[in-house]
Write a protein that binds this DNA or RNA. Structure first.
Length: 214
DNA sequence: TGCAAGCGCTCTTCCTGCAT
DNA sequence: ATGCAGGAAGAGCGCTTGCA
């Protein structure tokens, strides 16, 4: 294996086919005007060399990669796997590709914003929450839309699917009380999870409203 | 159909200023 | 005079696209 090896470029194909590099580009561009004979020569040369167009320069020019980053915190939850499968099918059907990014945190994706910006992804989808305004601003500056869960941050480039965790906590306290419960415990989730904090606060508030000890 | 500009980034080369 | 560090400038990457 030579360290200097590189895949064939459009220039290599052009040289082999006896046409210009731009003719090769047109041959691979759907709808571009090019004589059938020229296209056939280009395709034959491309086949012989094993040429496949490099998408990176296009990303360079258009600033659009066609890639949607999906950020996950782990695969321990079967719900994530099911969601991923459905999501990747939908993306493929829409002519997009999926970049799967795993972060160490189970709840917060702020730490990978730099990385995502570097890949020039078209959008970010995550079940993790975006918690810092700084990270949100960075994505907004690059005009990268993000769809996330349970983020309080708002902006033109952020869409968040949220549940009212505080109200859910209150409702849980009320329901348990209605079913005859008199002494309550709370099995808490991770302390750095905004959803967990809101649920716990809502639960405590619900108990207080019922004049019950926490 | 070909030429050439331009996209954003990295790497290399060249130049300048400073310390020894 | 020499060596080093830092900054500026230019080349190169592979492709698309406007124009001739």
């Amino acid at each position: 294996m030579s360290g200097n090896w590189r895949p064939p470029s459009s220039i290599d194909v052009a040289r082999a086919a006896g046409v210009s590099q731009s003719a090769v580009s047109r041959a691979f561009t759907p709808g571009a005007k090019i004589a059938e004979a020229t296209r056939a020569k280009v395709m034959a040369a491309a086949e012989a060399l094993g040429y496949r167009p490099n998408l990176l320069p296009k990303i360079l020019q258009t600033n659009r990669s066609g890639i949607v980053a999906v950020v996950v915190g782990g695969f321990y939850n079967p719900y994530f796997a099911m969601t991923l499968e459905a999501f990747s099918k939908a993306l493929t059907a829409a002519g997009r590709q999926m970049l799967l990014v795993r972060v160490d945190s189970d709840r917060i994706l702020d730490g990978v914003v730099d990385q995502l910006a570097g890949y020039r992804v078209d959008a970010v989808v995550s079940a993790l929450a975006l918690t810092s305004q700084e990270a949100a601003d960075q994505l907004a500056k690059l005009r990268i839309p993000i769809v996330t869960l349970n983020s309080d941050l708002a902006g033109d480039w952020i869409r968040s699917v949220s549940s009212d965790n505080f109200a859910a906590g209150e409702a849980a306290a009320r329901l348990l009380h209605e079913r005859g419960g008199r002494r309550f415990g709370f099995v808490a989730g991770p302390a750095d999870s905004p959803a967990q904090v809101a649920r716990e606060a809502g639960f405590a508030h619900g108990l207080a409203a019922l004049a019950l000890p926490p």
